[in-house]
Design a protein around this nucleic acid. Sequence first.
DNA 1: TATGAATGAGCTTTCATTCAT
DNA 2: GATGAATGAAAGCTCATTCAT
Lengths: 194, 194, 194, 194
Amino acid sequence: MKKKDSQKYDRILDATAELIRHGSVSDASTTKIAKKAQISQSSLYVYFKNRDELLATLYLRELQRLYQGYTEADVAQLTPAEAMNVYTHHLFDYGMAHPDSMTVIQKMKGKFPGDAEAAKQIQAIIASNPAQQMLFAGIKDGTLRPVDISLHRNVIFSTIKLHTENLLNGVYTEKDVPFEQVLAMINGAIMNLE
Amino acid sequence: MKKKDSQKYDRILDATAELIRHGSVSDASTTKIAKKAQISQSSLYVYFKNRDELLATLYLRELQRLYQGYTEADVAQLTPAEAMNVYTHHLFDYGMAHPDSMTVIQKMKGKFPGDAEAAKQIQAIIASNPAQQMLFAGIKDGTLRPVDISLHRNVIFSTIKLHTENLLNGVYTEKDVPFEQVLAMINGAIMNLE
Amino acid sequence: MKKKDSQKYDRILDATAELIRHGSVSDASTTKIAKKAQISQSSLYVYFKNRDELLATLYLRELQRLYQGYTEADVAQLTPAEAMNVYTHHLFDYGMAHPDSMTVIQKMKGKFPGDAEAAKQIQAIIASNPAQQMLFAGIKDGTLRPVDISLHRNVIFSTIKLHTENLLNGVYTEKDVPFEQVLAMINGAIMNLE
Amino acid sequence: MKKKDSQKYDRILDATAELIRHGSVSDASTTKIAKKAQISQSSLYVYFKNRDELLATLYLRELQRLYQGYTEADVAQLTPAEAMNVYTHHLFDYGMAHPDSMTVIQKMKGKFPGDAEAAKQIQAIIASNPAQQMLFAGIKDGTLRPVDISLHRNVIFSTIKLHTENLLNGVYTEKDVPFEQVLAMINGAIMNLE
DNA sequence: TATGAATGAGCTTTCATTCAT
DNA sequence: GATGAATGAAAGCTCATTCAT
């Protein structure tokens, strides 16, 4: 179950991500994954215990990748408000570069309710994200609106996700809807202007 | 296709909605729907041409229900900004009363790309929603931020959806996060304060 | 089960024949027959006990139609050899005029092995065909080859059937393959030139 | 699709052939085939992409078997007329030895109109049959009747098919209807005696 | 490590038929 | 006479998973 051939391991996850992006999670059947990864169906079970584990692994990988470029170092000296701006910017760059990843994260949100092990790991990763701490801090010091952080997170993520998707699908161009406008929209939502 | 026993017809749609709510769209298999509706599987095809038509019908029903309580009469005299507030309020009330419905709408958004007939009807219903016109009007008169309306719609819908869900799941109470705060958040996002 | 509304009765049989012609016998499902006959599926059972009876009835109807234009009167004065020529000619004319009918007869030959009642009626109809007697007579008087009459019948029917089909499908024209050539072919097969 | 267990592969095709023989092509359902081949239904799809491919494979196998014993070497030195006699004889021997095969070929003739790949292979096999060339040659040199070769082929195949069937079913014995008589019948049909 | 073979369970859909109205 | 409603059975097919090699 380990990554002897980590190239193949990644190919499986990549294939799965692509299938999810162009369909739904249930479109990522072991049959299709194997075909796309150019591997036999039964070989999937060399790398993953079962399909659920594969999906959970993918979700964790994408979450980690998303947060990878945004470490505590980046925001150590910033106010919560400034930090959130940096985070939003990072999310935008990431979304433009890895649309698959954001789609996968959005489509898999809320799966794995039965998988305690996965749920624990997911919590850990999210908690390790400095943006999470910044949200708490911002609410405490009154710079962010006093609502549950899930609402903050949702506005930021879903707005950036939709915006990047629109840009990549040619719904509009960056000239039509500049990032600054979107950032202002998000800030309007989360900032507490008293 | 028939309407004699409209009670059974509705039972099928209700069963489908419930299955989607507690899982994904693909969890609503004809087998499970029939079982939950206490009907034989083949009887589904007395009421619907096929599974896709059933799903499209459900989606249209929920969309219509959502918009039903929010007609042009309600907003005829209001400014776009006021109208959006009324709309947000309506969405909140509806979400609290019919959590299944909002979940279904969210999970089915973007399905039916191949079904031209369904797509047309969906477009018609969405277009008939006065909120749609208000968004365009608000952007034009400068009271709403000059971004694509899909971004406005997303902020409103996804925020209210998450908020009602949180309330109903006991994540927090209305005292912890009063509606006014959420409304302020949404307004902060969509309003153009110059 | 009787023919009160004989117009509808015929429409059912016609629809069935058409379906069989453009497919196989099993393509004539009650569902499709009913749709094509513009009748409800359950109404089929007003006219026929079940699908098998419907099919048997159709087969009998087509057999009867085929033999209808060829009565004893036509051949009373002829030698067996002359009578067979008249019969072949009749078959050709019938095939050109009613391609559905011949196709149905060919495709349904050999069905109804379990249906004793149908088998008896089929036998009776075939036996009543003067061509049948002519074949026996011709073999007895030595003008036809001394082989089982099923072989004679097969050569005549299958050749004419294929020829008419070829003509109607534009595989070739009557100028390319004149009827006289085909008649000569059949006669070459069945006639005993000593 | 695999050939490891070619015994099972053949068993599937044999089961299919038997079902077709005792019924129609549509009686060869995957359910029945699997049961007769003593295999699970889903296992069929290990060996064949789908039912159509299975049927096409069977048809090709039977065609090839039929022509296998009749190669160019057999007829290289013969006149078209002699060659056709050899072919007819071969067909008779084959029909007596493999009645299933001839039945399958007859019942499947004209299927696969939609399957371009299958159609191409079928054409290739038929074209490779020396009898085909002999028919063309015989018509050209005037020894065979100047009609479309489909008519020649039909007389030969359908007559031999029916004759072998009759013999095997005990309708008559070879003493009653000697092969020479049947051969004479076929020759009378196809030969051009000026 | 890798996979071909195999399968039970499930999928969507169509079938022939019955029955109450 | 006519049909809408209903259904068990069967159709073709894909699924996730196991196992021997």
